[in-house]
C-alpha cells in the first residue's frame, strides 16, 4: 500500500496538450468561453453581423475622407448646409453654397467633377450624405458609451446587492423592480425632456436619460449570477485555503459570473442606438444639423404626406440605422444562442 498507482493516461494527455499555447484573450474570457467565441466565428449569423459592424467601423474611421468637412478645422459633426430654403432637394442636385472639398475618390468613381448632394438635402438644405456618414460615429459613440456606463453601474449595483445580501439586497432589488416596471423609453423621454432645457441641446441629456433607465437589467443578472457562483464549491475551497474576501470576489466570483451580463450588453448596443434615434426623432436631444441619424429622420415628420417625393430623407439614414442595429443584433443573438444552453445548465 506504499506504492500509489499512477493514473496511466498522463502521457496521453501530455501529448495532446504539448503544443497548445494559451493566449491572453483565452485567459481573459476563460477556456470554455474562448472555445465558444472561436466557434461563434463559424456561425453565418454572427459572420454577417460582424461584417456589418466592421463595415461601419471602417466608415466611421474614414469619415473625414469619405465626406470631408467644409473647412479643415470646422466641426465635422455640424452638417454642412447648402442654403436655407425649406424644400428638400433631390439626390444628385448640385452643391451651390458652402461647398466642401470634393473627396479624392469622387471623380474617379463617378467621372463627375462637381460635388453633388449624393443623397439629396433635407429641409433647411442639410446634406443627407454627410448625415449618414458622420452619423456612424455618433451611433458608435452613443451606443458604446451608454452601454458601457449602464453596464458599469449595473454591475457595481448588482455586486453590492449580492455581496451584502439580507436587508440591503432586499431594498436595493425592490428599487430595481420599481424602476423596471416603468416603460423605460417613456421614462427616458421624460427625463431627457426635463434635462434638455437645463443643459441645452446636445447628446448629453438623451444619453443621461438612457443611462438612468438602462442599468437595471444588468444589476439583476449579475446579482443572480453572483449569488449562484457564491455557492460553488470552488469559492468555498478558496475560503478554506484562506483567500481574502476581496480576492474571492474579484478572482473567483466575478470572472465566473460576469459573462452572461457581457452578452446581454452586447445584445443591447443596437437597442440603445435605436432608442437614441427614437428620442432624437421626437425632437429631443441634439441641435438641428448635428450628425445624428435620428435627428435627420425627424425632418420626415414635417413631410410625412409628401414622402413619396422626398423618400430619400428617410430611406438613407433609415437604412444606415437598420443595418447598424441589425449587425449588433445578429452578433448578439448568435452569442446568446451559443451560450444559452450552457447558462441554463449552470446555477
Amino acid at each position: 500500500m506504499t506504492e500509489t498507482t499512477p493514473t496511466g493516461d498522463n502521457s496521453l494527455l501530455e501529448a495532446t496538450f504539448a503544443t497548445r499555447k494559451i493566449g491572453w484573450f483565452e485567459k481573459f474570457v476563460g477556456p470554455e468561453n474562448f472555445r465558444i467565441l472561436v466557434g461563434l466565428l463559424k456561425t453565418p449569423a454572427s459572420i454577417i453581423g460582424l461584417s456589418l459592424i466592421l463595415t461601419y467601423v471602417v466608415i466611421g474611421i474614414l469619415a473625414p475622407v469619405i465626406a470631408p468637412p467644409v473647412k479643415p478645422n470646422a466641426d465635422p459633426y455640424s452638417i454642412p448646409r447648402d442654403g436655407f430654403s425649406s424644400d428638400p432637394k433631390p439626390m444628385g442636385s448640385e452643391w451651390k453654397r458652402n461647398k466642401p472639398p470634393e473627396p479624392f475618390w469622387y471623380k474617379p468613381l463617378t467621372g463627375n467633377d462637381k460635388w453633388v448632394h449624393l443623397f439629396g438635402t433635407s429641409e433647411g438644405q442639410y446634406d443627407i450624405f454627410y448625415y449618414v456618414i458622420w452619423g456612424v460615429r455618433t451611433a458608435f459613440f452613443t451606443g458604446l458609451l451608454v452601454t458601457f456606463a449602464t453596464l458599469v453601474i449595473g454591475v457595481i449595483y448588482g455586486s453590492i446587492s449580492a455581496y451584502y445580501g439580507g436587508m440591503v439586497d432586499n431594498i436595493m432589488m425592490r428599487l430595481v423592480d420599481v424602476l423596471m416596471i416603468l416603460p423605460s423609453l417613456l421614462a427616458a423621454l421624460i427625463l431627457a425632456a426635463v434635462l434638455t432645457p437645463r443643459i441645452g441641446k446636445s447628446l448629453i441629456p438623451v444619453m443621461t436619460a438612457l443611462i438612468a433607465f438602462g442599468w437595471m437589467g444588468y444589476a439583476r443578472i449579475i446579482r443572480g449570477d453572483i449569488l449562484s457562483v457564491k455557492e460553488r464549491d470552488y469559492v468555498l475551497a478558496a475560503r478554506v485555503v484562506g483567500v481574502k474576501d476581496s480576492r474571492i470576489l474579484f478572482r473567483h466570483i466575478i470572472p465566473n459570473a460576469i459573462f452572461p451580463t457581457l452578452v446581454l450588453a452586447s445584445l443591447a448596443i443596437g437597442d440603445v442606438v435605436l432608442a437614441f434615434a427614437a428620442l432624437s426623432f421626437l425632437g429631443i436631444g441634439t441641435e438641428v444639423g448635428y450628425a445624428d441619424w435620428g435627428q435627420v429622420l425627424s425632418f420626415a415628420r414635417n413631410w410625412i404626406t409628401a414622402l413619396d417625393q422626398y423618400w430619400y430623407i428617410v430611406v438613407w439614414p433609415g437604412l444606415a440605422l437598420v443595418f447598424f442595429v441589425m449587425g449588433w443584433n445578429l452578433l448578439g443573438d448568435a452569442l446568446r444562442d451559443v451560450l444559452d444552453p450552457r447558462m441554463r445548465g449552470r446555477s
Binding site: 477556456p31 470554455e32 460553488r232 464549491d233 470552488y234 475551497a237 484562506g242 478572482r251
Partner: peptide
C-alpha cells in the same frame, strides 16, 4: 482564522465543482 486555515484543509466531494474553471 485565516492564519489558522494553514493548518486545517478540506477535500471536496465533487471534483468538477471544486476547481475554479477560470484558473489554471
Amino acid at each position: 482564522l485565516r492564519h489558522m486555515r494553514k493548518k486545517i484543509q478540506m477535500i471536496f466531494q465533487d471534483p468538477y465543482a471544486s476547481l475554479n474553471p477560470r484558473m489554471t
